[in-house]
């Protein structure tokens, strides 16, 4: 049975090998595209007064309901989210002012401790909101009722925690609460921030999907 040469492989086999190689390339491309999908970075704008920077954000009950920062073609249009992104670039040793258009309803806290504002300049934040009768109100707060929280903005390593009050049921359609606060950055570094209200609807205990994904309810504060 030992012969020196056998007939060459058929064209069909070559097609199969090439087909498998093409399939491999396709799948690899798919994986690579998925993996390197990273949320965009938002560079904070210098404020007109003082030497600080400011960031304007929006929180929505679902990405598809965005008003200020629509994000079409999002892979998860029905997830709760901060918009437009959750990766922020801010300068070191400066004052960062964040204003948030809060459009989501209240879902409440498991741990009432997070309803206290901490680590921000002046110890309180400014909020314009709607009361239970739908009337617009405004004021400075250092703590709010834990059952009215929709989301929170917390940077544990900087000690910053800010509760965001949910929009009242009686508020006019399309309106939002506006929360504004400032905090100081120290030396350069990368700090994680996230929402501490378990708002990942559809996952058990509410800590899944949007809560654990960059670009939705958690992100980075890049101080440089």
């Amino acid at each position: 049975m030992v012969v020196d040469r056998t007939p060459r492989v058929g064209g069909r086999l070559a097609i199969v090998v090439l087909g498998l190689a093409a399939l491999l390339a396709l799948l690899t491309g798919f994986l690579v595209t998925f993996v390197f999908h990273f949320p965009t970075t938002l560079t904070a704008q210098p404020t007109t007064v003082g030497n600080g920077v400011s960031i304007h954000l929006e929180t929505v009950a679902a990405v598809q309901d965005a008003i200020a920062f629509p994000r079409p073609n999002d892979p998860h249009p029905d997830w709760v989210s901060y918009l437009p992104t959750t990766i922020f670039k801010v300068p070191a040793n400066s004052v960062v002012t964040i204003s948030i258009d809060q459009e989501d309803g209240a879902s409440g806290l498991r741990n009432p401790y997070w309803s206290k504002a901490q680590g921000i300049i002046g110890g309180s934040f400014h909020m314009s909101y709607f009361d239970d009768n739908g009337a617009p109100q405004a004021g400075d707060f250092s703590v709010i009722d834990p059952t009215t929280l929709a989301h929170s903005f917390g940077i544990p390593d900087l000690g910053v925690f800010v509760p965001l009050q949910g929009i009242a049921d009686a508020a006019p359609a399309g309106s939002h609460n506006e929360i504004t606060f400032s905090f100081k950055t120290g030396k350069a570094g990368i700090f994680r921030w996230q929402c501490f209200v378990p708002c990942g609807a559809g996952s058990i205990y509410g800590n899944g999907n949007a809560m654990s994904t960059f670009g939705y309810m958690s992100g980075l504060l890049v101080v440089q």
């Binding site: 998925f34 993996v35 390197f36 999908h37 990273f38 949320p39 990766i87 990368i190 654990s212 994904t213 960059f214 670009g215 980075l220 890049v222």
Partner: peptide
């Protein structure tokens, strides 16, 4: 910051 976002990294 990582090149790959944390959830994608874990995936």
């Amino acid at each position: 910051p990582p090149i790959v976002a944390p959830d994608k990294y874990l995936t």
